[in-house]
């Protein structure tokens, strides 16, 4: 099990398109990937778009991922890169 902290840096936040990309990325891995806002207890499944949108994570929100499974390392790396790339969004 690994954990990973990221900050939402893109201006639109985890809006529909970014959330879709996150779900698509997370779904490529067999590991369980959970996610929560650092300012709240609720833990949601990163493979559930409804859960991610419910986080209402705008720019500047800090998120924590908890990843557990055979490919947890690769999954963590892919998610980190996705946030770093600001979901490919044009600023």
């Amino acid at each position: 099990m690994i954990s990973l902290s990221v900050e939402v840096e893109n201006s639109l936040g985890l809006h529909a398109r970014a959330a879709a990309k996150l779900v698509q990325t997370a779904s490529r891995f067999s590991s369980n990937i959970y996610l929560s806002r650092e300012d709240a207890d609720q833990r949601i499944d990163s493979k559930s778009i409804l859960g991610i949108l419910m986080l209402a994570a705008s720019k500047g929100t800090c998120l924590a991922f908890f990843i557990e499974g055979k490919d947890e390392i690769e999954a963590g790396e892919a998610i980190r890169r996705l946030f770093k790339s600001k979901f490919g969004e044009r600023e």
Binding site: R17, A20, S48, I49, G51
Partner: peptide, 16 residues
């Protein structure tokens, strides 16, 4: 068309 990706993902949503 990406908005439809969101819709497809809602359909696939395991929790729902």
């Amino acid at each position: 068309s990406v908005i439809l990706d969101t819709h497809i993902l809602i359909l696939k949503d395991r929790a729902l």
